[in-house]
Design a protein around this nucleic acid. Structure first.
Lengths: 354, 354
DNA sequence: TTGAAAGCGCTAACAG
DNA sequence: CTGTTAGCGCTTTCAA
């Protein structure tokens, strides 16, 4: 009634369970004749080796993991335009690209990939579930309580992605947020001659958003423009809806005074919201005002005007993560590594380059 | 030196291993005071429950799986335009969307998702690896030898996606290929008044491609147009390059005679190849000739002219797959289900609707 | 080349 | 509420 085991296969083929095991693990160590008998019995019984038992006995799983936050933009989801008319396509998120990258790389190394997003009100520690079933895993910043990570990373290779290292003995990969935004702001200032900029940031706790703001500040400083200590506005979740609100707030605030020549958003989603808001107000982009994002999500090139942004190499992030994990698995004591992946500015229509 | 176990935690906190286990499995069944002692010990030791041991003892994993083919379009990959300039964005594939859908749905049900693509020359049976580590899994058609599936599905819930059922006791979900293509052809005939159509199909073994051709035939029949037994042309892999070749072949063949008013391709990739080929020949789409695809990949709306196509609900496919798996897990003996998901025609520029 | 036996770390009755 | 006791199905020495 229950699933067949090595014992069943062994019995049916007249060998010991050790031999059955060998057939699956290292076929060449078994006489061809014996092997065939075993395989035949296995087939007849519908035998499938238990990954759990294997893992338990051998202390490896052949699986790498990824924990990522539930990044779904709720606005994009409920939006009839995005959901009903749904090309899911446009809504591809970071996590999807990281997954792609990791899956590819993992496959090359003979690993499968276990993915799990932190469910918002998740009861059980997401990470524990993953951690218990993989040989090593990557974590997107802010997905898992540092405290948990602290404990787990003592027993298992962990690589932190796209955030500050937080725990100093971990491998870690980040993206050149600051460089990218500085580059972008420079472009606006130097190539488009804009001198009145506004920056819409994210949560103060978001290292990415903060780094981007720093890049913006640097560009302003270089150009001799006024440098603000804080973004002109902050948004918690950095969603499209917040982009709309931020834009309205900024423009209302500027009413009467001179309107900024460009608004730089800490991510694409907000910038796209801004595009909508501006259109509603009858302002033309980029003629009346330039808009930029950050991330290079697919939607950014589909919206009209197409969005000038900074592309993050998310897929590569995933690939590098796997490389780091594999390398650490091979050599658990090597020193922690910290990588910074370069980004590139995508000059498109929303800044006037289209 | 090695990872701490329940025994270590039990000893350090002065309880039995059973209590430690309870703390993780059902915290409320342990007195708060005891629980805290255990948790503290666990923290101190860096204890992480072994998923393998848990799975082995409880006979469940809390993980669902997905096996998908290595779908990368080699043409799209090597293409400098797609790889170097790389917005991965445009290259999002079915599998990515299915993964999205499954991950979401799995999460809702408290499952994590294990994904594995069949590596081309893969040694070990991909599916065995997955099968041994999950409570149930979905398989994209043509990914796994039917023979293996036959064996495995006797022990584990399996749902077949986007293909023929192949094994009759499996749950299975397909997409209304035939309906979609019929709808599309009708639109061309009725709304655009086209009466001379050509169809470029795929491999005779591809059920999807065949079903699409049938839909095309039906529309022709309804409209009193000549009905061919075979597609005007077939392509093995249905890549862009083949789309180019097919288009050239078709047009060369028609040289002198009347050129078809529209070419319907069995998928988007070929249709996009056709767009290139036609441009090269100086033919305008849709004025001189209409072109349609099938799938609704992201690229289809980005190309110029944007491609009229039939959108497949890939994400929903993933969601439904999880629902089916969960339901079968709850009731292993219920009759196999077969779902057909509806598709929708996306009328865009390449047929003259843009 | 094959077999015997001892775990791997946890859950699941069943007692208490 | 907590402890005892068997396994779960496989890998892995160590012998034969």
């Amino acid at each position: 009634m229950s699933a067949p085991t090595v014992y069943d296969v062994a019995e049916r083929s007249g060998v010991s369970i050790a031999t059955v095991s060998r057939v699956y693990r290292n076929p060449d160590s078994v006489r061809a004749q014996t092997r065939d008998r075993v395989l035949e019995a296995a087939r007849a019984l519908g035998y499938v080796p238990s990954g759990n038992a294997r893992g338990l006995a051998s202390r490896t799983t052949g699986v790498l993991g990824l924990c990522f936050p539930d990044y779904a933009d709720p606005d994009a989801e409920t939006d009839a335009e995005a959901e009903a008319e749904a090309d899911d396509s446009a809504v591809m998120l970071y996590s999807d690209q990281i997954i792609r990258g990791m899956e590819r790389a993992a496959r090359r190394h003979g690993y499968a990939l276990l993915i799990a997003a932190s469910l918002v009100g998740g009861p059980e520690s997401l990470v524990a579930k993953v951690a218990g079933r993989v040989d090593g895993f990557a974590v997107l910043a802010k997905t898992v309580p540092t405290e948990d990570l602290e404990v787990i990373s003592r027993r298992l290779p962990v690589v932190m992605l796209a955030g500050p290292r937080e725990i100093d003995h971990l491998d870690h990969i980040e993206v050149a947020n600051s460089d990218g935004e500085r580059e972008l702001a420079r472009h606006l200032i130097r190539d488009h001659g804009l001198r009145s900029l506004a920056f819409v940031g994210g949560d103060r706790e978001s290292p990415d958003a903060q780094a981007r703001f720093r890049g913006y500040q640097e560009a302003c400083r270089e150009a001799g423009l006024p440098v603000t200590d804080e973004p002109d506005l902050r948004a918690e979740m950095m969603t499209q809806a917040e982009g709309v609100r931020a834009t309205d707030a900024l423009l209302d605030r500027a009413a009467g005074r001179e309107r900024p020549g460009a608004i730089l958003f800490a991510n694409d989603q907000m910038a796209i919201g801004a595009l909508h808001a501006l259109e509603r107000r009858g302002l033309r982009v980029p003629e009346d005002i330039a808009v930029t994002g950050f991330d290079g999500i697919p939607l950014s090139r589909i919206v009209r005007p197409s969005l000038t942004t900074v592309r993050q190499p998310m897929r590569r992030l995933g690939e590098e993560a796997v490389e780091l994990l594999v390398r650490r698995l091979a050599n658990p004591t090597r020193d922690p590594v910290s990588l910074m992946l370069p980004v590139s500015v995508a000059r498109r229509a929303s800044c006037g380059c289209g």
